[in-house]
């Protein structure tokens, strides 16, 4: 084997190895559940119906504690809500208005341009309401957790009885998939907590699946466009690589090497 063939074989391996290094150490907890997600894979899209149901779960359940400060009501067009639906959802919220002539705070109905209404004025107020552990903002929560969608789904469905002898302190809860198994959040979802307009049965698993789909979208609103564009761009570049290689072969055809 000549040096260059050897190199050609070793190089991709070395590069792949260094890429793999970036994947941080595997967590020594329960293996996360593997749900089937509409958005996984190169050709994955987004199950809009699930995302819309997920928004309902967020709106009716999660949003009583968790903010979503990077999302605007107008963004909901991305999960297929119509302009009128968005307007109605926004208008049903009361948001801070401009200062009045006396310099006092006012309120007004929300508009599509407004940020999702936060349950607390700021993170300090949220922390105070939960004994210091402010519920995290959910805008990019899914991307901010190792394991992503499977992790979020795992947490939402992972409330089980602690094993015998495991002591759960007051104010904490046992969760199978939480690192260390102790979580500040009480079990958020219960069967039939929401009533889906499309008649889907609101089991914990169903709601967890839907809200995780919604959270994938809030974390990666560009994903569907991105992947679709990516297929075209990569195909184009592969084609160009083939073309330039053919041209290269022609140009080099008279060189002895």
């Amino acid at each position: 084997m000549s040096a260059s063939t050897l190199l050609r074989r070793l190089l991709p391996a070395a590069m792949a190895a260094s890429v793999l290094l970036a994947a941080p150490a595997v967590r020594a907890e329960e293996a996360l559940p593997h749900e089937h997600w509409s958005f996984s894979g190169i050709f994955g899209g987004l199950d809009l119906a699930a995302a819309q149901r997920g928004f309902q779960v967020y709106n009716e359940v999660c949003s009583s504690c968790h903010s979503m400060n990077l999302l605007h009501y107008r963004d909901l067009a991305g999960i297929g809500l119509t302009a009128q639906q968005i307007k109605d959802i926004a208008a049903s919220k009361t948001v801070p208005g401009p200062l009045d002539d006396n310099g006092d705070e006012t309120t007004r109905p929300g508009t599509p341009a407004d940020v999702f209404k936060a349950p607390y004025k700021n993170s300090k107020a949220a922390g105070a309401a939960f004994g210091g552990a402010a519920p995290p903002d959910q805008s990019v929560l899914l991307n901010a957790r190792e394991g992503g969608a499977d992790y979020i789904y795992g947490i939402l469905t992972g409330y089980v009885d602690p094993p015998a002898g495991f002591k759960v302190p007051d104010g904490l809860y046992y969760n199978e998939y939480m690192p260390g198994h102790l979580i500040h959040m009480p079990q958020p979802l219960h069967d039939d907590q929401v009533t889906y307009a499309d008649g889907t049965k609101a089991t914990v698993a169903q709601m967890a699946h839907d809200v995780t789909t919604f959270l994938y979208w809030t974390s990666n609103p560009e994903a569907v466009t991105r992947k679709r564009m990516g297929v075209r761009v990569v195909l184009f570049l592969v084609l160009m690589a083939g073309l330039t290689y053919t041209v290269k072969r022609q140009i080099w055809s008279d060189v002895e090497h």
């Binding site: 991105r226 990516g230 761009v233 570049l237 160009m240 690589a241 330039t244 290689y245 290269k248 080099w252």
Partner: peptide, 22 residues
């Protein structure tokens, strides 16, 4: 032209990461 061949392959890998696993 030889650099262009490499460039196209490189950009294809680069694009795959950007679009599919950013």
């Amino acid at each position: 032209v030889k650099d262009s061949v490499g460039l196209c392959v490189f950009l294809a890998i680069f694009a795959a990461i950007v679009f599919f696993a950013p």
